[in-house]
Design a protein around this nucleic acid. Sequence first.
DNA 1: CGGGCGATTGACGGAGGTCAAGTTTAGTGG
DNA 2: CCACTAAACTTGACCTCCGTCAATCGCCCG
Lengths: 241, 241
Amino acid sequence: MGTIRQDIHSSAIPVVCRECEARHGGICSALEPAELLRLGRHARRREVPAGTELVSAGLPVDTYANILSGVVKLTKLLPDGRQQIVGLQFAPDFLGRPFAGSSSVGAVAASTVRLCVFPRAELEDMARQSHPLEHRLYAQSLRELDDAREWMVILGQKSASQKLASFLLLLGTHIDPTVDGFSDVIDLPWTRADIADFLGLTIETVSRQLTRLRNAEIISIEKNRHVTVLNYPALTTEAGI
Amino acid sequence: MGTIRQDIHSSAIPVVCRECEARHGGICSALEPAELLRLGRHARRREVPAGTELVSAGLPVDTYANILSGVVKLTKLLPDGRQQIVGLQFAPDFLGRPFAGSSSVGAVAASTVRLCVFPRAELEDMARQSHPLEHRLYAQSLRELDDAREWMVILGQKSASQKLASFLLLLGTHIDPTVDGFSDVIDLPWTRADIADFLGLTIETVSRQLTRLRNAEIISIEKNRHVTVLNYPALTTEAGI
DNA sequence: CGGGCGATTGACGGAGGTCAAGTTTAGTGG
DNA sequence: CCACTAAACTTGACCTCCGTCAATCGCCCG
């Protein structure tokens, strides 16, 4: 009985959503088939290379998106040209700042990113009507808030080496959504400059601390981007728990 | 006609809510009279002195609250005893972290704080049923997220003097909810240690930077706690815009 | 092969943390 | 009202960490 209803429903959902990675984890899981159909009509898939500016800080936004794969960095620019990365988003996160004319942060693809894009008005309209959808959005913003505050501690209190270790720990636990625990092989989708922006350091300090961790045989680095964590306990100690 | 209905409604709302400061700005403004009545039945007003621990990080929470007056600081503790203040809340903010068994942050009264406390289960139940209420909660979390990211920039990129200036600007625009713009007389509800924790500095550095601003005649300080902004443009320049 | 970008490494200096007096403020008891 | 005290704040001396500047190396791509 339950399965039959499921089948009827799944046959009613849009074709693009059938095999979608964000269908179950993302905000779409809060939608009824009819709603999914409505949003699906306006949704468009898009794949963008690393470095693509998805949202510009201060500029009006007229689309939102789900992240299907890849990493998006949220940045804030300072008048002098420096930038601070204020958040990272992974699949199947929702990308956008609902109910504000413009975003106060910029969003840039940190790796090749696949998105499911839909018009702003459509989603906001649906959020106003669908309580489960808004609940889902709310839950994500609470998670982002927890993350942001976690990073405030790192930015405010930790030394350069602790920042680096914390950063690697974060990546290991988030970068591969298929692995549940900690993944000890990390392909950095960032340059040293990005890491520096994220941690509030300079590229030189990032570089120095990475070589320090390598010399201590806590990590190994190949071709600048491929990091393997050799000694996980030591890394947590470095991070200052 | 409209006024008559208003009067009927207002006579149906709980007595405690009649004259409530949070009635219109806070989450209660999203509630129907019947809902207000339900929540009001379980609500209790409470006044606590500065320093009272309202929520302990990691411990389960069974109540939420509206802030009626005063300032609440949200803190995160490090293993070594240092702390980072990750947020400030003012009236009529909602205080709590819905849909999580425990809070990842601690909440401490930074001044005398008056609260309207209600049971956790009651509010979560209502949020599940009332879309406008959840929308209100969502809107606040988005605002907090924006604030948190704003502070990440300050923590990550700014110098000690810029941090102090930014801090004073923040306070001037938030501390007195009755003043709409910038209030140039600020009664700090904090010790230097609190300010240091907020800015990721030490008390000595905070003290030095404050005397520097005083010597530059940008601010004046009386009896440690009473700050007057003498030169607002200069303060914004100090803050690095 | 050479130009360019990113990363590494070194030398140096300054901002801010640490340690250690003093000073002011607020609270307490006589 | 005035000592006395504790806590909060200020100020100074010193030193460390990290940012700045600069040279070099390694890799990729034309």
